[in-house]
């Protein structure tokens, strides 16, 4: 209820766009130590919430009542009441937490500790560290399989995806990828793992059952030096057919056919595009643009940018809340 009051108070006379359903996109601003909350109907920033130092990774629990935020330079994960914006408590996270994933059962948070070459597992209820797993140098990307049985950490300098069995909390496979892996995601059916390599300029697709590489996506945009096309964050459309990949300093998002792995289109967005989140109805895609300090809203069906929204300095992570 409170959110609606805020919305009404902020925009008493604005005409509401008809189509978009209500929802929010939370964007972490790395150099402003806060979160910009964007209303997906009005496409305006409706709230700014203070966080710890250098907020990067952000995610919600299943019912979206709680937000988890990596406050990297505070060396903590903050747990926030998503309704009030109040920080309830911190979780022990290890040093310099950057990205994390919450297990599907909402119980364990798996955190990449960038400066420490470990992945930390925290029980969010007891607030205890359950395990620390040694991985490669500069762990960053974190992914959990839909069934919760596998977690993957990617390490930027070691150039690997480390496959962790969540039952034993040990690594069962290490697979090399191209230089500087940034982000990892399992497909919705759990059959594939995708890993982006920023400096290598590719996205590698793995078969989860065998951990074997089954494909690799490369990019090319006319007029842009090839080594500036640097894949970082990405998201899968819920229909399982289309992937959207942020391409960093090339200022574009690639649209990929998930079956053929062909790039179908490049969408121009803001400068140094990092991560992205769909609106709750998946009709819009919001990209964080680190250098230009804004968020680009993409109309998913039309594959066109429709608006830039000014947020804080160095927007990094994005997460949707209905």
């Amino acid at each position: 209820m409170r959110r609606i009051f805020v919305f009404l108070a902020a925009l008493p006379f604005a005409a509401c766009p008809v189509a978009a359903a209500a929802g929010e996109i939370w964007v972490t601003n790395e150099k402003d130590d806060n979160i910009s909350v964007i209303d997906t109907a009005t496409l305006e920033v409706v709230r700014t919430i203070a966080t710890g130092e250098r907020p990067r990774g952000i995610t919600f629990n299943s019912d979206h009542s709680r937000a988890y935020i990596c406050a990297s330079d505070s060396d903590a994960v903050e747990v926030m009441d998503a309704r009030t914006g109040e920080i309830l408590h911190e979780l022990p996270s290890g040093e310099d937490p950057e990205q994390f994933v919450l297990a599907p059962d909402d119980k364990h948070l798996w955190i990449a500790n960038e400066d420490d070459a470990v992945t930390t597992v925290v029980d969010v209820d007891t607030r205890n560290v359950v395990a620390q797993i040694n991985v490669g140098i500069e762990p960053e990307g974190m992914a959990v399989s839909p069934d919760g049985k596998i977690v993957v950490t990617t390490s930027e300098t070691t150039n690997m995806a480390h496959w962790i069995d969540t039952a034993t909390m040990t690594i069962f496979a290490n697979t090399l990828v191209d230089s500087r892996p940034r982000h990892a995601e399992f497909t919705a059916d759990g059959s594939e793992l995708w890993v982006s390599s920023e400096i290598g300029g590719t996205v590698t697709v793995f078969d989860v059952a065998t951990q074997a590489e089954k494909g690799k996506i490369a990019f090319g945009i006319a007029g842009i030096n090839g080594d500036l096309i640097q894949p970082v964050g990405f998201e899968f459309a819920p229909d399982g057919k289309t992937a959207f990949v942020a391409l960093g300093p090339s200022n574009h998002v690639a649209v990929i056919d998930m079956k053929t792995l062909a790039v179908e289109e490049y969408i121009l967005v803001g400068r140094r595009v990092w991560h992205m989140a769909f609106s709750p109805d998946h009709k819009q895609l919001f990209t964080t643009n680190g250098v230009s300090g804004d968020v680009t809203v993409i109309d998913v069906a039309a594959r066109e940018p429709v608006k830039s929204i000014k947020v804080g300095r160095f927007p990094w992570g994005a997460a949707a809340r209905p």
Partner: peptide, 22 residues
């Protein structure tokens, strides 16, 4: 915030031993 001990560095040999099967 609960007290925890964070392992900082682990020697390459130990890592190799830990990950022997992987």
């Amino acid at each position: 915030m609960p007290e925890i001990r964070i392992r900082r560095t682990v020697s390459a040999c130990l890592l190799a031993a830990l990950l022997g099967a992987a």
